[in-house]
Nucleic acid binder design. Structure first.
Lengths: 337, 337
DNA sequence: ATTTGCGGCGGAAACGTTTACACTGCAAAA
DNA sequence: TTTTGCAGTGTAAACGTTTCCGCCGCAAAT
């Protein structure tokens, strides 16, 4: 398992190991013939560079940390895919950590990552408290938050214009003839959810219809939470023609409850989601929803992070992307004629 | 950004930095009072250990590489979740790489990971050629393959008993009264798919019914592939009462095609999948399928890998896990009475 | 009183790189 | 001819650890 090092190469090539290093790094101050000769020897001996040693002296690891609640969440995994691809384009690798929605674990893995000397960290917050939870740590390493709006906190983040998203969504529902739209939200604390709720309310006001918020006792925006809320609605005849779920996961829960209650979507109620996770486009689901531009968010996140890493003076950036409506078939046009 | 090192601590504590190292590593050959004193100073000065430096001297990084085709695939991301959690339990972190179904990229990231000095690599093969593609490299670092059966190749892998899985599945279909079961498979090359097809055929023989294989021209086992196959079937009246899809993704494609063709599942045809990906349990999908025990596979993979790492003489292991039937509602009982 | 043993600690090497600095020769400029 | 310059190469320090080895002093054994 003993691997061949620069010194071994140097010995064989009869040069100092500084010269070998220069040959490998593409330095100009080396003779063309010696470079060729050394590179050939490297190939012949099966030399592979040791990144750890390089990191040691360069004081950079070309490693980025990615902390997500759980990678098997479709939103997280889609983000992770694009983040990893983008990072690697720039010569960085990714260390993946799940925080499992546990604030202590989140802190632990964050500390672990700084011990690992990662050059920067991308964090998809476990929940609303993540920022305060990590505040003492984020000074130790460049960090960018993804998807959670930190409002005007002095930290970099990229998120979607949540207010605008629900605004667009309820406008669309309105355009389809819906006048009584129920909103399934999330318990307070998350400014993302706060903003989504506000966008919905604002749109209702503008359109002259009555906003109607509903929220669950579940801490997370899960299928179960959506199901729970929907069940309460579905027990008795209800005066709503549409439900706007604050996330696709909640919408999935509505689907489930509707299935049980024998309520048809979109024939009996229209349903709109938010996020456009992979699940939303599945056959039989075909959820009309508001898309978070995940690929753009991902690349923006690594670009911002890389800038913070290379330029100490770069301060912080807030990047808020525009959501778009993606129409599928969970919303019905109920206008007369 | 200059962080405090062991030497800084040593200076303050008036000891050699060897002593500081001993205090931190829990060595016994150090006085209890000095240890306490040093640890206190570390806390006060905000010392964080440098894993890179440690890796350098210890000749181990406590890093595992994970190569998947694409992490946003639900099967991959579920595996990744459990792999990361298990690895971290044992003090290892994970470097994540997507190979994007590209053999060249797969080789590149593999080489990258050995450059990074990872202690081992877990590989969820991009496709059937992965093994031969990486053969020259896998001698450089302990590697275990996941989910792809390598038959009796001298490399460690963990997979599911694919033959048994389809066997169980067709038996179940038979028990529901189905006598004409169509199998949607995958183009050749993958021994996993080979074994699944064989299990189906064998079960048919045993049960005295006619096996009927169908496969698509798509290289990957995708929703599109399933859709394509199903469309061909659905154009004309067909004599099958059930379709057994070799993967849940293919089954999803069948759902899509059925939707378009106005064919109801399970009323008109029963549908069975394989893998039990997260999608399968979604409302409106509720796919009856064969479960790959993903968490068990994940933990087994890292356990085997860790053994290979710590014990050079451990050889290789083949771990084949038992699949189980998970009944949901895509298969109908068509027996009389 | 002398030896032996050992707990506690310091010194220094080692891990595999990169790079600042010094040095050598040789060609061009004086 | 002497100086200057520069391309090409070697030397050595540095990055932050761990650990082997040795030293010191004190207690127990002889």
């Amino acid at each position: 398992m003993k691997s061949v090092t620069i010194k071994d190469i140097a010995k064989v090539a009869n040069v100092s190991y500084a010269t070998v290093s220069r040959a490998l790094s593409g330095s100009t101050e080396i003779g063309e013939e010696t470079r060729e000769r050394i590179l050939k020897i490297c190939r012949d001996m099966g030399y592979t560079a040791n990144y750890v040693a390089r990191s040691m002296v360069m004081k950079e690891t070309k490693l980025l940390g990615l902390i997500v609640a759980n990678i098997d969440n479709p939103f997280m995994s889609e983000m992770a895919y694009h983040i990893e691809m983008r990072a690697r384009e720039h010569g960085y690798n990714l260390m993946l950590c799940n925080s499992a929605h546990d604030l202590n674990l989140e802190r632990n893995v964050f500390e672990l990552l700084v011990s690992r000397q990662v050059d920067g960290i991308i964090l998809v917050p476990s929940n609303a408290e993540s920022y305060t939870n990590l505040k003492p740590l984020i000074s130790k390493v460049p960090t960018v938050f993804v998807s959670e709006n930190l409002r005007d906190l002095p930290e970099s983040y990229v998120s979607v214009d949540n207010f605008r998203g629900t605004h667009i969504g309820t406008e669309y529902l309105y355009s389809l003839g819906h006048r009584s739209i129920l909103y399934f939200g999330q318990r307070k604390g998350s400014v993302t959810h706060q903003l989504r709720a506000e966008g919905y309310i604002d749109a209702c006001k503008e359109l002259g219809i009555e906003p109607n918020l509903f929220s669950s006792s579940y801490p997370l925006s899960s299928v179960q939470a959506g199901s729970q809320m929907a069940k309460q609605i579905f027990t008795s005849p209800f005066p709503y023609t549409a439900i706007f779920a604050a996330t696709d996961s909640l919408a999935l829960g509505v689907f489930a409850a509707a299935e049980e209650a024998g309520i048809r979507i979109p024939e009996d109620v229209s349903l709109m989601g938010f996020d456009n996770i992979l699940y939303a486009d599945l056959p039989r689901i075909r959820l009309t929803t508001i898309e978070q531009p995940k690929k753009t968010m991902a690349t923006a996140a690594v670009d911002i992070l890389l800038e913070k890493i290379t330029d100490e003076t770069s301060g912080y950036s807030h990047r808020i992307l525009t959501p778009t409506l993606v129409v599928r078939s969970s919303c019905r046009d109920i206008r007369q004629g």
